[in-house]
């Protein structure tokens, strides 16, 4: 009965709100997805934070700082949305530290040169935007509203990344080479950010029925590739995929095989930076403990004084 009413509401494109009845599986699917999304924003600060102190100009440094600050904000919007499902911030962070909750695998790759700041903003944020635009229509109200807010802020991220790549691509031969190298390293992991092909994606069924997801992984990936190919051409770089070509019949670009063995290996902890990313988060968290403690006891004191 409840389940039927719930599904009717979803079919009518009405949003599910925190106090509404929902199937336990809907709740746990959302907690998994939103927390993974939140953790990705937070862990995603690390590869970019790596370059703040080495940005090539004051302008670039200010922009990068603002971008990393935005990512922190996006993580917090998403933690808030996730908490409305009845899980606490502490539990969420604990799950990340225990390896029970994942974050986007792309952040387990290192950022080796300044051009990587370009590739990350342009491709990684670009892919994230395609996904997040689609998720603005997700059925869970707080998640949907979070996505709307994030999408509004996200487009500066992609443009600043593309600007860096464009600048480097028209720079010295060495700079152009760095730009091409960054594109080579980030292209495949970026298009794999959309997740496994739908034929191999075990959870897609319910997620589509419940409108948590609104489009298939392959559909979103194709959209991203189609819109990015032209941008690559404009700045005179080359996508590292010999099979990439326009398919007149489909009206889309065909592309080569993705290396899913590598993808799963990185997801399962064997990427170049998995250990480093998590260790850094744990360290920052435990080193901040005294600040949280001091703030808590100050607040208790104030309550006593004001009582």
């Amino acid at each position: 009965m409840n389940e039927q009413k719930f599904q009717e509401k979803i079919d009518l494109e009405r949003k599910i709100e925190p106090k509404d009845w929902m199937p336990e599986e809907y709740r746990s699917h959302l907690i998994r997805q939103i927390s993974q999304h939140a953790h990705s924003e937070i862990i995603g600060m690390q590869p970019e934070g790596n370059w703040i102190s080495r940005a090539p100009s004051l302008r670039a440094k200010m922009i990068l700082l603002a971008k990393v600050q935005d990512e922190a904000g996006h993580g917090l919007y998403l933690y808030s949305a996730c908490e409305t499902l009845g899980i606490s911030r502490e539990e969420l962070v604990q799950q990340l530290h225990d390896g029970k909750a994942k974050y986007s695998s792309i952040f387990n790759y290192p950022t080796l040169s300044w051009a990587d700041m370009g590739a990350v903003g342009w491709l990684v944020d670009g892919a994230a935007i395609v996904n997040q635009v689609s998720l603005q229509r997700t059925s869970y109200g707080p998640y949907s509203r979070g996505m709307v807010k994030i999408c509004k802020e996200e487009s500066f991220h992609q443009r600043q990344g593309y600007e860096i790549m464009a600048e480097m691509a028209k720079g010295t031969p060495e700079q152009k080479e760095m730009a091409q190298d960054a594109l080579n390293r980030f292209w495949w992991p970026s298009i794999m950010m959309f997740g496994p092909q739908d034929s191999d994606s075990p959870r897609t069924g319910n997620a589509m029925k419940w409108k948590i997801k609104r489009q298939f992984n392959d559909e979103l990936r194709q959209k991203f590739i189609d819109q990015t190919v032209g941008q690559v051409k404009v700045i005179g770089l080359e996508i590292p995929d010999p099979d990439l070509k326009w398919n007149e019949e489909r009206g889309h670009y065909d592309f080569g095989e993705m290396n899913w063995d590598e993808f799963w290996s990185v997801v399962n902890g064997n990427g170049p930076c998995n250990i480093q990313r998590l260790d850094h988060h744990k360290k920052a968290h435990s080193e901040g403990e005294w600040v949280r403690k001091a703030a808590r006891s100050y607040s208790k004191k104030q309550e006593i004084i004001n009582a």
Binding site: Y77, K149, R292, R296, Y298, S299
Partner: peptide, 8 residues
């Protein structure tokens, strides 16, 4: 617009 955590 949303919420946040803070001690005071």
């Amino acid at each position: 617009v949303g919420n946040l955590h803070a001690p005071d």
